[in-house]
Amino acid sequence: MFEATFNQASILKQVLEATKDLVNDANWDCSAEGIALQAMDSSHVSLVSLSLRGDELASYRCENQISLGINMNTMTKILKCAENNDRTIIRADDDADVMVFVFESEGRDKTSKYEMKLMDIDSEHLGIPEQEYSATVQMSSKEFSRIVRDLSTIGENVEITVDKEGITFGAKGESGSGTVSLKSNPSVDEGSSNITIDLTDSVKLNFALRYLTFFTKAAPLSDNVSLSLSADVPLMVEYAIGDVGFIRYYLAPKIDD
């Protein structure tokens, strides 16, 4: 039996918003430790990895490991039936073919219950190697969303350069080009870009903005985002989910043909 209780529906709603455009169907792998999901997008360009720790949830139990095959769009629709502040319980019996959702209103005077059919999903599980990155940049998640949105009006790809000056995002298109640079500046002045850069080697890599746009759907989960880069390996974009866990996205670089 698997059962997880979230004090508010909003975390699950936000997790689904952050994944449903990238992944249609995914196995939610539930164990005694918590909930994990790993899935590639349909083009196999990017990978999303979600982790929610059971001991940081309002309550959690999972006696036997269970993989719950979920259509992300269906789950998104069911979660829309909950108010953000509803206490939310998700539950599945061992060998169940449905997941049960219970939403309790703040005043406990309204309870809604939904059942969602589970699916058999054949998914490849990739081993993500431990990686020391040449550069890790922490910045405002809103700022990152803004830069991705702005540069998407210029071109399809972004060149990200990190050196000791800071981080620069650049895009080129048929009609022009644009760059946005953020200086590495430990000042805590109001209105400063407030980024921190952990750098061992300068890096310059190219990525498809289309996928970064999908990743920025996770911005409501966290005020900050961290970008980790090394030459010739996938970019890792991480949003913390409070103390409960994280959502990490990996994006393969564009390479010279």
Binding site: V45, S46, L47, E124, L126, P234, A252, I255, D256
Partner: peptide, 13 residues
């Protein structure tokens, strides 16, 4: 010209 790499090329199956 740059081409898109696949994520599966980087992570072990």
């Amino acid at each position: 010209k740059k081409k898109q790499a696949s994520i599966a090329n980087f992570f072990k199956k």
